[in-house]
Amino acid sequence: MDERITLNHGSGGHKTSELIADIFKKNLDNEYFTADDAAVMPAPEGRIVMSTDGFIVSPWEFPGGNIGKLSVCGTVNDIACMGARPLYLTCSYVIEEGFAVADLVRIAEAMGETARKAGVKIVAGDTKVAGKGQVDGLFITTAGVGVIENDVSLSGSYAKPGDSIIVTGDVGRHGCAILLARDEYGIEADVTSDCAPLADAALALIKAVPETHVIRDSTRGGVGTVLYEICDQSNVGIEIVSDSVPVDPAVKGVTGLLGLEPLYLACEGRFVVIVPSEFEEKAMEILRSVESTKDSVVIGKVVSDHQGKVVMKTPVGGMTFLPPPGKELLPRIC
C-alpha cells in the first residue's frame, strides 16, 4: 500500500479497489457490506428512521477520538434521538490528495470499532479524492437507517410546561478538547472529548419510560443551542439552575481564561432529555445505569412563562437569560 493518498486512489481503478479492500472492508466488514452499487438488507419491522450528517473537524484527531469515531456517533445518536435502534450506516469520504494512508487506517479502525460498539453495520461507502487544498484533510458524511420498534413518538416539539430537563453528563467537553487540540491560545489542559454512541441509553430510556417527550443530541451548538431549539419548537420557556449544569473543572478553567460559555461548547456524547416530571426519577435511574449516561443530572424544567427563552437561576438567587445562540464563539478579553 502507498504511504499517501493520490488522485489515483479516487479514480475508480485498481488503486481504488485496493484502498477499499485494505482499509475499508478490512475494518468495516459485515454480512451486508457491499462491493455492488448498493447494499441490500432485510426490511425491519416497525417505522424506519433515516438521518445524515457531514463531518469536518480540524484537527481530525483529538483526545478522546477522531473523525471516524465522530462520524459514527453523530448519525447513530441522531437516529437514537427518535427512539430508534440504529441499524445501518453508509459513509462517504472526501480525502485530500497527500493524506497519509496510515492516518486513514486509524480513522477507519475507529469507525469500525465505534460501529460495532453502537451495534450498527456500515453497509456501503464511497471514496473521492480531492486535489491538494480543496479539502482540509478529509471530510466524512454518514447516513443511517434505524427502526422504531414500538409506538413511541419523540420530538423537540413535545416539551410541556412542568417537564423535567436532564442532561446526560458534563457539558462542553468536545468543543473544549477541539479548541485545545488546535493549540491557538497556548493553553494546556487534560480534557478528553465526550464523543460516544448513546443509542443503548436512548433505547433503555424509552423502554422504561415510553412517556419521554424529547431526546435531543447536543452537538456543535452545545446544550444551550438545543435548549433554545426546544423552546422554539414547543412554544415554551425553559428554566435551568445554572449551578446544576455539570462542567468539568478543566473545562471551567479553559472557558474562564477565554471568557467562553460552556453551554455553547460542542458536545458529541450528550443528550438533552425531557420527561414529564412524574417520570423524572425513573428516567434518571435508567440513564444512570447506562455507562455513557451515568452522570446524568436534572438541570431544570420546562415552563409556560417567557416563551422562546432560556432563563437561568443564578448562584446568588437572581434570574437571568442565557444569551441566545448563533454567534461565533470568540474569546473575550473584556
Partner: peptide, 17 residues
C-alpha cells in the same frame, strides 16, 4: 464602568435582586 462587571451582573441576575 467595566464590561466584565456588566457581564457578571447580567449573568448573575443581580438587577432583579
Amino acid at each position: 464602568v467595566c464590561g466584565t462587571h456588566t457581564h457578571e451582573i447580567f449573568k448573575l441576575g443581580i438587577r432583579g435582586l
